[in-house]
Design a protein around this nucleic acid. Sequence first.
RNA 1: GCCCGGGUGGCGAAAUGGGCAGACGCAGAGGACUUAAAAUCCUCUGGGAGGCGACUCCCAUGCGGGUUCGAGUCCCGCCCCGGGCACCA
Length: 815
Amino acid sequence: MPEKNYDAQRIEMKWRRRWEQIPLYRAEANPARPKYYVLEMLPYPSGTLHMGHLRNYTIGDAVARYKRMRGFNVLHPMGWDAFGLPAENAAIERGLHPREWTLRNIAEMTRTLRRYAFSYDWSREISTCEPEYYRWNQWFFLKMLERGLAYRKKSLVNWCPECGTVLANEQVVDGCCWRHPRTPVEQRDLEQWFLKTTAYAEQLLADIRRLEGLWPERVLAMQRNWIGRSEGAEIVFRLEDGRPIPVFTTRVDTIFGATGLLLAPEHPLTAELVEGEGRLRVKAMIDSRAQKQLAEFDKEGVFTGRYAVNPYNGERLPVWVANFVLLEYGTGAVMAVPAHDQRDFEFCRKYGLEIRPVIRPAGGEPARADLLEEAFVEDGVLENSGEFSGLSSEEARRRMTAKAEREGFGRAAVTYRLKDWGISRQRYWGTPIPVVHCPQCGIVPVPESELPVLLPLNVRITGRGRSPLESVPEFVQAACPRCAAPARRETDTMDTFVDSSWYFYRYCDPRNDRLPYDPELIAYWFPIDQYIGGIEHAILHLIYSRFFCKVMRDIGLIRHDEPVRSLFTQGMVLKDGAAMSKSRGNVVGADELADRYGADTGRLFVLFAAPPEKELEWQDAGVEGMHRFLARTYRFLTRNAERARSGAAGEAEADRQALRKLHQTVRKVTQDLESRWHFNTSIAAVMELMNELHALEERLSGPVLQEALEKVTLMLAPFVPYLAEELWEELGRQGPVFDQSWPDYDQELAREEEAEIVVQVNGRVRSRIRAAFGASREELERRALEDDKIQGFLKGRQLVKVVVVPDKLVNVVVR
RNA sequence: GCCCGGGUGGCGAAAUGGGCAGACGCAGAGGACUUAAAAUCCUCUGGGAGGCGACUCCCAUGCGGGUUCGAGUCCCGCCCCGGGCACCA
């Protein structure tokens, strides 16, 4: 039978048409079957689908297909994130409504994704900018409001005076507005909505331990770091008029070395204590810090002229305002211990405050202030610390904290770096926050029955002024739900990270109009077995969604504590050393590639070129190699398909050899896919097998050819879906290949007949011998020593010992 | 500064619990087919030295030590690259 040429386009078109006729992957909850929920992180519809995205989806798709062939009920849904700011900005530039822009791009990207034959369950497609999704965002918001987990407070925000609008942190570049690079950003005090993530700080941290081994260590480390738990003590210093200034420290043991008390510029007491020209300097501090000057700005302070009393020794400490003290961390005030803290040291040296060592290294010389250079922080033995002198740092911390508690001037305390999540955006494109401001009743939540509060469509978005919603009277004017008086509707919208925090729950039940989802369905599908995405979401998205999970659990909707069992972070796809992005103009488009080589080739390349967690430098040359392999395989199969079915005879030895390699390959690929996703080595193994089949081609019998070709097709199915379907049909088999079972292997057939034993002399390979598997140590040793080459090395030397590793190696040690 | 990764041919990479370093692919060289090209197929390809030759020896996994019969893999000390956090008290 003549071979056929590989026409990737024809094959793709053919199968795409057929797949459109049948629901490809429709997963229904079925408690009788084991489930597998695999998901790639939600993309936002930028319109361009490039190889960076494609790598993410291809990995998930390969896993989904494999798991399906292993008999799992696979849920693999697909949806889109509205991603507020980029959408709104892109829309402004093009004079489009953000909604129009988003829907257009979703349509475009869906078309391309379908081309790559992803195994998504499109019946579950959701888009987070749809009213039914807003409704449940708002529903969750109200639940949190009820529980005190959502609140409003005044807070400093970035403000661009040129745009006259609030900026998100990401929009501040080098202290200036991203659109006005010469306009410094100011800080403004505005009322903002927050979700109380800090209420779950301890749980978020503690549960990280359950994710160990299942999530990449690097992600866990980042999250631990971000939550930033510190154990220490809160000690109350008092001004001479008796007013308290609590201070948080992890080093109470150094408190006898405190020679000053430092307040954050924004600290409530600052404004009161600082007078005259000092006020201007404090204001300057606040503004300069807003500009996030590249890390290093000089330490500065303003003396308040007041003193505070150290409760441990009654000492009077000067109270300063210092620009490096953070209001948001701890209590917004710190004690200055210049002898044992780098920052305090720099500050006190600059302003001439006393530097007094109170810790010496265990077993070392007493510390001397004039010798202090960089050796701070370390624990040691206390000195000059009254009743605590002579104690170890650890012991001292315990006793000093106990004393503070006993005498009522302090307590043990834990502080977190994690802050509450500011969700207010003075922007249009996001879920409206469902509350109304009533002149009589204050903040009144919109009743559940009136949800969703929808965005008005007739709005002019200019990117200037405050929220565009403020200039839509029909939206702003509302009746108070409580007293029916005229009231003002909240115009802040939610951060779109709220959307992405729970979208994977909605997938399980996307059309539910009574609840965000049916808890029963969640109980079946959750947790997500495998979540796949880029490292850039390690902190924000993955902490927010863990937080949401815990809140939903406490509301009583779900029972599990963590949403995601295993997390996989794939490496970026680089082009010319930089991440692909439209703005950089270095994208390799997914469509363009599919036009040239076919989608299968593109998929195979991103899976083959490197292990999926590594970064991948895109090389067009490598793509051609993948295409060659597929073409070669296709030709081989088509020219042998007839003979394979014929039952033709072959050479026994060739058959044995081919079967051995075949079963070894199935074993290797199966193990690779089960334990670690090194698709590159799986694919390499199939290539090796094909090379072997080429070498044996004419000598193989029909049945062996058939078995080999079928198994090759099945093994390729997770990676190259179109070609696999076509090959399956060429082999005369019925039914879609993704419905077949994963091929199995036979350990006996996979076994080599003889072992090749490496013979080393002093650890260097000098010869090889062949021996039956299971040959005894004695036999191997004897055979090795008899070997001609080894004899040569033994001449004139003394045999010291022989190390034998059965079936593998003999090492002869000589002197 | 602190916390994570990582460093192997010309390139992407393999080597899964210490046991043949460089599988598989790309690029390159030579050859076959062809009027020619493309495509395809075959052979070679880490560096060095020796031999007419089948071959033999030496060097080689960022650098320096160590453990071991044996180290890319384990331990100690450095160097370099990438990433995250960063006056977090």
